[in-house]
Structure formats: structure tokens, C-alpha cells
Amino acid sequence: MTVLTVIAGMSLLAWLWLLAGQGGFWRTDVRLPRATAARPDGEPRRWPSVAVVVPARDEAEVLGVSLPSLLAQDYPGRAEVFLVDDGSTDGTGELAGELHERYGGLPLTVSSPGEPPPGWTGKLWAVRHGITLAGERFAPEFLLLTDADIAHRPDSLRELAAAAVDAELDMVSLMARLRVETGWERLIVPAFVYFFAQLYPFRWINRPRSRTAAAAGGCVLIRASAVAAAQVPDAIRQSVIDDVALARAVKRSGGRIWLGLADRVDSVRPYPDLGELWHMVSRSAYAQLRHNPALLAGTVLGLALIYLVPPAAALGGALTASWSLCGLGAAAWAVMAATYLPMLRYYAQPLWLAPTLPYTAALYLLMTLDSARDHYRGRGAAWKGRTYPRPDTSA
């Protein structure tokens, strides 16, 4: 029992350190600034030209909501949309043209780059094609890289550009508000963003001298000059977790980046059951660990210590009348739940879900193990009919 009490104490100490020393990861107030992101009249001195690049593969289910929101952007400067059809079989490209005819709005170009060559992920090959098309058309000052399942409020591009221009940022990224409607989405989705922020605290990312770098691939506004300086997407062409790789490349090349939670950008992709949510996480979880067995083992032990020990100690201590064990476990569990409350409020979810975070963390642990199993069975990271092997790092 003494050993168990020590482990419970270590878990509590870990939570106290996370609470105070992990960049305030649990806070949800890192939002796109308004009063300081533009002049007092809310307008930058000049609106830069922007090319909106949308890689899309079999997105007909969601494109009817997302694409009209881009075409309807209220943007005073020049902006054009380039939808890159990445080998869709569901009529995504044709639907895009029909939506433009129906709704009008910003100019739209629909094109397809063909199958990606060896060493490229499909999304990054499509992004490269879209960037090339935009450069041939009008040499934009900024690129808005946004996924085909992301819907933007009418002033989204205006606010992003104003923030980038006023703060002299090279890249501004927003973590889109994911859909939370079903029971499984309520259990899994807020925790997904919570865990991401714990790994990559937004405040650390936004410090110019910090080495922490990450972005949210669904919504990235980036200067064309920063794209050239970082040599992206070519430099990250094999990356499955391309948003983090993009942010690292830009920051390494001297660019200033910013990441926050979105108020005007929403994901419209549904994840109605556990199977689809499981695949969303497991397809890239082991890639996040660089396919390293030692990192996998450390992650499993870390998740167990931080998320599973507190409820086990609290309940086990209560059942065995070991009150020191129970008290340490309950205290760690309480700190954990308290840090989760802001994310639940952001997603307008019941606060009683906070104590269930250990159960959700256990699911994520299993998803990570499943991702590693798929990798060693030769499946790699799979997405819409494509499977990507471990990147070749010998070059």
C-alpha cells in the first residue's frame, strides 16, 4: 500500500506541475484578438491579396456547407478560391462548380493535380498544386489553407488578415470548433482539443522565442513569403501530421506564428459513432510519436500515471479504508477535472463530464496502441483509401 500511495502522490505532483507549469494549457482564452489585431477603426491600412487553397478528397457530403461559406467571404481585398480535387470518386469537383454557379461570390478555380508522386501525402500534393495555381494567377501575399470540412463565418478571412497584418505575423492558425452533437462526440471531441493543448500549449506556441510550434490544419493563414522561406510544402511532403510540421518549418525559418481557438471557424464533419472517432485519432497517433517504441512505452506509462492512477487510487483507497491513498487520488482527480472545465464550457457541454476524463483518456490510450499495431502490421496511417508508410528519414 505504501508503494501505491507513493504512486498516487506522484500523480498529484504531476497534476500540480501541469496546472502551474504547462503554459496554462487548460485555459480557453487564447482567441484571435480584435481590439489589438486591427487599428481602432477595425481596419488595417491595406488589405492584402489572399488565395484560399482547399484540398478536397471525397468531400461531397460536407462541401455543400463549407464551400459556400468561403465563397461568401466579406473581404475588401482581392481573394480567390482554389479547390484542388485530390482524386475524388464522389463528384467533389463537379459539385464545387455547381455550388459556385448557384451561390456566386469569390472567384473559384477547380483543378486536380493527379495522384501524388512517391514520398508525398495526397493532401500536401494538393496544397502544392493549389499554391502553384494561385501564384500563376495573381501572386497572392497570403494563402489561406483550409480543409474542405471547415465552414467560415462571413468575416472570418477579414479577421484573420487583420490580425496577421497588424501583429506582423507570418502565420495565423485557428483550431476550428469541432462538431459536438452525439454522445460519443461529447465524450471524445472536447478531450481531443484539451489533449492537443496539453501537448502544445498555445501560449508557448505564440512566443517568438519558444521552440514549441504547432498549428491547426483546418485553418491556416500564411504569408507567401513565409511559404517560400520555409520551403513548404516540399520540405514536409511526407508528413502525416502536416499542420504541426508546417508550423515547425515556419518557426525554424524565422517566421512568427500564432495559434488560438476559433470563434468564426467550425468543422462540419460528423463523427456519429465511436468507430469514426477512433479512426480519426488512431490513423496518426503513432506518427505523432515518430513511430518510436520507446516513446510509445513512455506515453502509455505517462497516460496511466496522470489519468488512470487518480480514480484508481481514490476508489481503491476508499474501498480498502486507506485514506491517504484515497485522499491523494481524489485530489489529483479533482485537479484534473478542474482543468477540463474550461474546455467543456467552450464546447457548451455539461460540466458533469469533467470527472469522466480518465475514461476518455483510457480510450485515447487504446487508440494509440491500435495505431502502433496498425503500423507494425504494415497498414500505416490510412485516410480515404490511401495508406502512408513510415517516412524515409535517410534522405
Rank of each mutant, 00 (worst) to 15 (best):
L325C: 07
A321P: 04
A314T: 06
V335M: 05
A331I: 06
Y359M: 14
A312P: 14
G329S: 08
T339D: 09
R345D: 11
A332P: 14
W352P: 10
W323I: 00
V335Y: 04
S322L: 09
L315E: 04
V335Q: 08
W333E: 09
G327I: 05
V335G: 03
G327C: 06
L325G: 06
P311T: 02
Y340A: 07
P355M: 01
L325F: 05
R345E: 12
S322H: 15
V335I: 14
W323D: 00
T360F: 06
A331E: 05
A314Q: 06
A334M: 11
G317H: 01
A318M: 13
A337R: 12
L341F: 00
L319M: 13
M336R: 10
Q349C: 13
Y347S: 06
Y346L: 14
L319S: 03
M336Q: 15
G317L: 04
L325T: 07
V335C: 04
L341Q: 07
W323Q: 00
T360W: 08
P355D: 01
L344V: 02
A334N: 01
G329Y: 02
M343Y: 15
A337Y: 05
L328F: 09
W323S: 00
Y359T: 14
M336L: 15
T360M: 10
S324T: 15
A331K: 06
A338S: 12
T360H: 03
L325S: 08
L319E: 03
L351N: 03
P311W: 02
M343E: 05
L357A: 04
L328W: 07
L319C: 00
P358M: 10
L357I: 11
S322M: 11
L351D: 10
L341W: 08
T356D: 10
A332M: 09
A348V: 05
P350I: 00
L351Y: 03
M343G: 02
P358N: 11
L325A: 02
P355T: 00
R345K: 13
L341H: 01
L315P: 13
L353D: 12
A348N: 13
L344P: 14
G329L: 07
S324K: 12
A338Q: 12
G327V: 04
L328E: 09
V335F: 01
L315D: 04
A321S: 15
T339G: 10
A354M: 03
Y359V: 15
Y347R: 11
Y359Q: 10
L328R: 13
S324V: 15
L353C: 10
A331W: 02
Y359K: 03
C326K: 08
P342G: 02
C326A: 15
T356Y: 12
A331V: 02
